[in-house]
Computed example of a mutant assay.
Amino acid sequence: MKRASIAAIAVAGALTGIAQAQTSSVTLYGIMDAGLVRESGGASGMLTKLTSGVAAASRLGLRGYEDLGGGNAAIFTLESGLKIDTGENDVANTLFNRQAFAGMKTNYGTLTFGRQYTPLFWAVTQVADPLRTGYVGNAKTLLPTAGNGTRTSNTVYYITPEVDGWALDLAYAMGEQAGDAGAGRQMGGSLRYTSGKLNARLVYNNRNSDIAASAATAAAPAASHDIGTNILLVTNYDFGPFRGFFSYGRDKGYNSAPFGVPNAYSGIKAVPSTDSRDLLLGFQLPLGSGTLMGLYLMKDDRTRFNQDARLSSIAYSYPLSKRTDLYVAYGHLDNRNGAGYTVVNSSESGSGNRASTLGVRMLF
């Protein structure tokens, strides 16, 4: 076991002891997920593997809460990713790489500081994607949530109180590059609406990928790029027999639609789109004791390369208890004109245009 994992366990034990001694609470939580995955269609050929975090990334976390009175509370979250298949941290030389933040909940909203998920990612995983960005072939395959689209460090995040079903998320991630306050920064927000059977969000994300001279290295020299922006409308509605999903988005500018494996296929070079549109249709349907989920997602690349992609995915989750489920899933990509997208799962970028999985997930 890596030193970071040992440290995480030690911190968990110490903080749990504090929670028992005080009125404030510290909760240890986690997800343990492991599955067999078969990938094919990439330049490297077929790959069968036992992997961790297919339906949901395996993790170990701590949540702290202290009631300060008057409707106010201090909060924190520390969350570390891990690999069930090897026992390692999922990112080397890190401890709480997934989330690490502290803040306050008040009658005027929630304000937190640290490493956090983006409003864009929350909208995709909570509202847009019937697969909840899990299994194989989830919406992260084509929607712009790679890298800093998922979470950012040095982030200030504010959520307003909900009023008549409406609420607002605002986030600002500092680039922290000397001499250039804008370089590397990212900001975004989402307008939420929830009413009965309807969930909807309108999301905006703005990313500066510049590298200031003070932060330049041999591997990443100083650079100036245009701003990458994402606008995404996500909705789902409970029709009774099933829940339907619809999303439409626009990605514009440098790093607005990155993909994780740029050399996955031989032939025409894949180029990340700087002008694209995304359309998602999906469903969740109770079937037997479990849930059947599916989506169809189109990326329309409007650059001169015209590297479009189409994704079709289906998954089924069968609960063994309130905390444990078995799952099976399949995803297929149709890349066009040399597009380089790969079928992802919750934790990995994938290696080809087809993937299937069978696994088990436990929450605690």
Results as ranks from 00 to 15, higher is better:
Met1Gln: 08
Val11Gln: 01
Gly13Lys: 14
Gln20His: 07
Gln20Asp: 09
Gln20Pro: 02
Thr23Leu: 05
Ser24Ile: 07
Thr27Asn: 08
Tyr29Ser: 10
Ile31His: 01
Ser40Thr: 14
Ala43Gln: 13
Ser58Asp: 05
Asn72Leu: 07
Ala74Cys: 06
Asp85His: 14
Thr86Cys: 11
Thr86Ile: 12
Gly87Tyr: 04
Glu88Tyr: 10
Val91Met: 10
Asn93Thr: 14
Thr94Lys: 12
Leu95Arg: 07
Lys105Pro: 02
Thr106Arg: 02
Tyr108Gln: 07
Phe113Thr: 10
Arg115Phe: 09
Tyr117Thr: 04
Tyr117Asn: 05
Thr118Val: 12
Phe121Gln: 00
Asp129Pro: 02
Pro130Asn: 06
Val136Lys: 01
Val136Pro: 03
Gly137Ser: 03
Pro144Gly: 02
Gly149Phe: 03
Tyr158Ile: 11
Trp166Tyr: 12
Leu170Ile: 15
Ala171Ser: 15
Ala178Asp: 10
Ala183Trp: 12
Gly184Leu: 12
Arg185Cys: 04
Met187Val: 10
Gly188Trp: 11
Ser190Tyr: 03
Thr194Met: 08
Leu198Asn: 07
Ser209Cys: 12
Asp210Leu: 14
Ala212Cys: 12
Ala213Glu: 13
Ala216Asp: 10
Thr217Asp: 07
Pro221Ser: 15
Gly228Cys: 09
Thr229Asn: 03
Asn230Leu: 13
Asn230Ile: 15
Asn230Thr: 15
Tyr237Ser: 07
Gly240Thr: 12
Pro241Met: 06
Ala264Lys: 04
Tyr265Cys: 04
Gly267Ser: 07
Ile268Lys: 00
Lys269Asp: 04
Val271His: 00
Val271Ser: 01
Ser273Leu: 04
Arg277Ala: 04
Asp278Ala: 00
Leu285Phe: 09
Leu287Phe: 04
Leu292Lys: 08
Leu297Cys: 00
Asp300Gly: 01
Phe305Cys: 01
Asn306Phe: 09
Ser312Pro: 03
Ala315Asn: 12
Ser317Pro: 11
Ser321Trp: 15
Thr324Cys: 09
Gly331Thr: 09
His332Ile: 04
Asp334Ala: 11
Asn337Met: 08
Gly338Leu: 06
Ser347Lys: 11
Ser349Trp: 01
Ser351Val: 15
Asn353Met: 02
Thr357Cys: 05
Thr357Trp: 01
Val360Asp: 02
Leu363Trp: 14
